[in-house]
Computed example of a mutant assay.
Amino acid sequence: MGVHKGHDTVPAESERTDRQRQLGETQQKSKRRIQKREKGIQEVRQAVKSLKHSAQGAMEGSERIFTELIHSIERRHSEVNGIIRAQEKAEVSRAEGLLKRLEQEVAALKRRDAELEQLSHTEDHIHFLQSLPSLCVLPGSEDLPSITVNQHVSFEGVKKSVSELKKQLEDICSVEIVMISSQMT
């Protein structure tokens, strides 16, 4: 015994069986842990796949809805432009009618002025006396109608309304983005 004092000894058969049993249990625990982790890996992969599919569907739906919204806004834009054009056409027509009437009055007044000028140089007193009363009465009314062409008809109101609509849409979008973001987190 003295000579072999520092050497390792071979365990007895029962010790070796206990260690093998412990080793087997440890291996079983390790295998179960590996299986659990592999199952966890599969679940996470499936969750990632599902998440990607769900996100893709949400993006496609969002794209479709925003495209519809853009088309709706474009239609409303065309409608507003049509209203503006109709108002412009009506006001231009009114202004052109007024312009034509004023041009006719000016032409008539110039003719009358020319006739008066010609009458003032006549030496035929009978002709002068016969023509003067009719030339002294001015055609049309003395009071000129209000000669205003409203250049800002209601276009300022339209611009203000469209600006307010833009602000409301931006406010709604901001609130909805915050809500969407909070739902995602």
Results as ranks from 00 to 15, higher is better:
Gly2Lys: 14
Lys5Gly: 00
Lys5Trp: 04
Lys5Phe: 05
Gly6Val: 00
His7Ala: 10
Val10Ile: 14
Pro11Val: 00
Ser14Asp: 12
Arg16Leu: 10
Gln20Thr: 13
Arg21Tyr: 06
Gln22Glu: 09
Leu23Ser: 11
Gln27Phe: 13
Gln28Pro: 02
Lys29Tyr: 12
Ser30Lys: 13
Lys36Gln: 14
Lys36Met: 08
Lys36Asp: 12
Lys36Val: 03
Ile41Ala: 06
Ile41Asp: 11
Val44Thr: 13
Gln46Tyr: 06
Ser50Phe: 05
Ser54Ile: 04
Gln56Asp: 03
Gln56Ile: 00
Gln56Cys: 01
Gly57Gln: 06
Gly61Asn: 14
Glu63Arg: 15
Arg64Thr: 11
Ile65Asp: 12
Thr67Pro: 02
Thr67Ser: 15
Thr67Ile: 04
Leu69Glu: 05
Ile70His: 11
His71Asn: 07
Ser72His: 05
Glu74Pro: 01
Glu74Asn: 14
Glu74Thr: 10
His77Gly: 04
Val80Ala: 02
Ala86Thr: 01
Gln87Lys: 05
Val92His: 13
Arg94Gly: 09
Ala95Lys: 03
Leu98Glu: 06
Leu99Pro: 07
Ala108Val: 09
Ala108Lys: 10
Lys110Phe: 00
Lys110Trp: 00
Arg111Thr: 11
Ala114Tyr: 05
Gln118Ala: 14
Glu123Leu: 13
Ile126Gly: 10
His127Leu: 13
Phe128Leu: 06
Phe128Gln: 07
Leu129Met: 07
Gln130Leu: 03
Ser131Asn: 01
Pro145Cys: 06
Ser146Phe: 05
Ile147Phe: 07
Asn150Pro: 00
His152Arg: 01
Lys160Val: 07
Lys160Ser: 13
Glu164Val: 03
Lys167Pro: 01
Asp171Trp: 00
Ile172Pro: 02
Val175Tyr: 08
Glu176Met: 06
Ile177Asn: 06
Ile177Phe: 09
Val178Cys: 01
Gln183Thr: 05
Met184Leu: 14
